[in-house]
Design a protein around this nucleic acid. Structure first.
Length: 558
RNA sequence: GCGCCUGUAGCUCAGUCGGACAGAGCGUCGGACUUCGAAUCCGAAGGUCGCAGGUUCGAUCCCUGCCAGGCGCACCA
């Protein structure tokens, strides 16, 4: 049971004692002002109406009837009726033992125990290299997976490769034109093609790999395969592009459990036809103008769609929407209790119909929109458009800014807030980036351990260390802050907001650095030294745990 | 026209379930290295929380309207 749970029990006991109405839960907040205590609750104010008594009077009764607990030094009534709790300094110092004993598990919880979660993110189209917004989605998605796992969830991460339909056709035809050009043939890009330079390079690789130098050789080569040339070339290009995306993500520290091919795993298995029949049997569709429509506008709550959507075109081809509905129903929800999709901002017009379809099928789909990244270089906007072939690659971001700094930067913003990212500024300031502030605190702590080893100082087991010398305000502040960590992780997991962890780590480092500056660990007073050593070890452990949740390294030295 | 997101310090952004005096980083200005790492620390300046109403003990937060910026509104994906 966590500290706040125990405090809530104390409140409930006090309410019983005073004959006041019971409460299920109790909102504990950490006051900004130190003089308002370590924890505060407004429970007396919320009880004022049902109990028909003034809030301050209720608060007085709570304070009078609160049971004695080793955690709590004293309580007081403040302001309009807050109950402020002051923790016992001795108990706070002792609580470090719990952090040290828990080690890398400190911060984990069971909020989502045994829950099966399917989490899809990035899922960039296989029409070119990954760009900045993909890096943002990857950082957020990966951190979410780690957060949910830390709360006991079984998470399956997925990258969905949209290698079918019109988009694939456009890519395949563009690539075919580039290959033909590469052997000297006069071939024009299709109107809706992709003009980017990368396809030119990829075509060059293709003809080199296959030892093709003339149009005649290319023609013979394509004829020999027996496949439709566009199809063959398109498949080859997609495989190469997806492999490139996977490689960059791996360098970024992001690995997916499942890579799904729309062509092989969905269309070839006839899932759309099966699910569309199922939808029709449930009366959720109708035919009009030769097409099959989904009754989006009639289904679901007020957040649902405002018009009906086509599932199967009059040509007989299933739409992207139809395929997606089928895949979510037949695969994702059949293997998971929760499905979370991270989508790009260009998809938010799509959310309504998808949510309506999932509601109709009884599936609680959760969709997070990762907002746009506006890329700047020296304050000037950089257009990101695959169609114009003018964009900044995720690979360049990793080279210029680095993996840890990039990930941390993305994780210090809410996912639904548009982000401005100035490459030049990020590069110039990289040594002052907040991520290094946090990492540096960790490296300093490890440095203390190295120093102790070099000086031959023996560190006993944590149990054998007396922690009562930790009475300085800075030491108490650090110990109390470490107690918050499990609550922070739980809150971030519940809200699906990893940025809370990133901000909290900066605050922790912001308390540690001044402490380090003014309080020496290694010193003559052995009792004090060991107590401080244990405190620093606990801080280092929590920084490591927090950074691990974000997929950022906790270096031994920098 | 309709829908979604956003509007908080010069810039980039936090602000939990409505709570006490509005927060950080960067930038600016002024200081601190013979002691475990100066990627650090100490101090200062910097605010009409877009605007106007409403709800209530209390609103940056919830509701309504307006203004501004971004994005989306296909038998595309």
């Amino acid at each position: 049971m966590s500290l706040t749970d125990r405090l809530t029990e104390g409140i409930r006991a006090a309410l019983r004692e005073a004959g006041l109405p019971a409460v299920d839960d109790c909102a504990w907040e950490i006051p900004r002002q130190g003089e308002h205590g370590d924890y505060a609750t407004n429970v007396a104010m919320t009880l004022a109406r049902p109990a028909r008594r003034p809030p301050r009077q209720i608060a007085e009764a709570i304070v009078a009837g609160f049971p004695r607990m080793p955690e709590v030094a004293r309580l007081e009534v403040a302001g309009p009726g807050f109950v402020n709790v002051f923790l016992s300094p001795v108990w706070c110092a002792e609580s470090l033992r719990e952090v040290l004993a828990a080690g890398e598990t400190w911060g984990r919880g069971d909020l989502l125990a045994a829950q099966r979660v399917r989490l899809e993110f990035v899922s960039a189209n296989p029409t070119g290299p990954l760009v900045i917004v993909n890096a943002r989605a990857a950082a957020i998605g990966d951190a979410l997976a780690r957060l949910l796992r830390a709360q006991g969830a079984h998470v399956t991460t997925e990258f969905y490769v949209n290698d079918a339909g019109n988009q694939f056709e456009a890519l395949a035809r563009s690539f075919e034109a580039r290959v033909r050009q590469a052997v000297g043939e006069a071939a024009a890009l299709p109107d809706s093609g992709y003009p980017g330079e990368y396809l030119v390079e990829l075509a060059r690789t293709y003809v080199t790999d296959h030892h093709l130098t003339t149009p005649a050789e290319l023609a013979a080569h394509l004829a020999a395969s027996g496949e439709r040339p566009t199809e063959r070339l398109g498949r080859w290009a997609v495989a190469r592009i997806v492999e490139g995306q996977r490689r960059i993500l791996r360098e970024y520290g992001v690995e997916f459990d499942v890579w799904t091919s729309e062509q092989h795993d969905v269309r070839d298995k006839q899932l759309p036809e099966l699910v569309l029949d199922d939808l029709a049997a449930r009366g959720l569709t109708y035919e009009r103008d030769g097409a099959l429509w989904f009754r989006s506008s009639e289904i679901g709550d007020e957040t649902a769609d405002d018009k009906d959507r086509v599932l199967r075109r009059s040509s007989g081809e299933v739409t992207y929407f139809g395929v997606d509905v089928a895949y979510h129903h037949a695969v994702k929800f059949s293997n998971a209790d929760r499905v979370i999709d991270l989508l790009g901002p260009d998809h938010h017009g799509y959310v309504g119909r998808m949510r309506a379809a999932m509601q109709a099928l009884g599936h609680p789909l959760e969709i997070l929109i990762v907002q746009l990244v506006t890329l700047l270089r020296e304050g000037q906007p950089v257009r990101m458009s695959k169609r114009r072939g003018e964009f900044v690659l995720m690979e360049e971001l990793l080279e210029e800014v680095g993996r840890d700094a990039a990930r941390f930067t993305f994780l210090t913003r809410r996912h639904d807030s548009p982000l401005e990212f100035d490459l030049a500024v990020a590069t110039r300031q990289s040594s002052e980036n907040p991520v290094y502030y946090v990492q540096y605190a960790h490296a300093r702590i490890r440095s203390i351990a190295r120093q102790a080893r070099e000086q031959g100082i023996a560190i006993p087991a944590w149990d054998a260390i007396d922690l009562t010398p930790l009475v300085a305000p800075e030491e108490q502040a650090l110990a109390r802050r470490l107690l918050h960590f499990p609550d922070v992780v739980r809150g971030a997991a519940r809200a699906l907001e990893p940025h809370r962890v990133a901000f909290w780590l900066q605050e922790l480092a912001g308390v540690f650095h001044p402490y380090y500056k003014t309080h020496r660990v290694i010193q003559e007073d052995r009792r004090l030294m060991l107590a401080r050593y244990a405190l620093c070890a606990a801080v280092g452990q929590v920084i490591e745990n927090g950074l691990a949740l974000l997929g950022v390294a906790a270096p031994e030295s920098m």
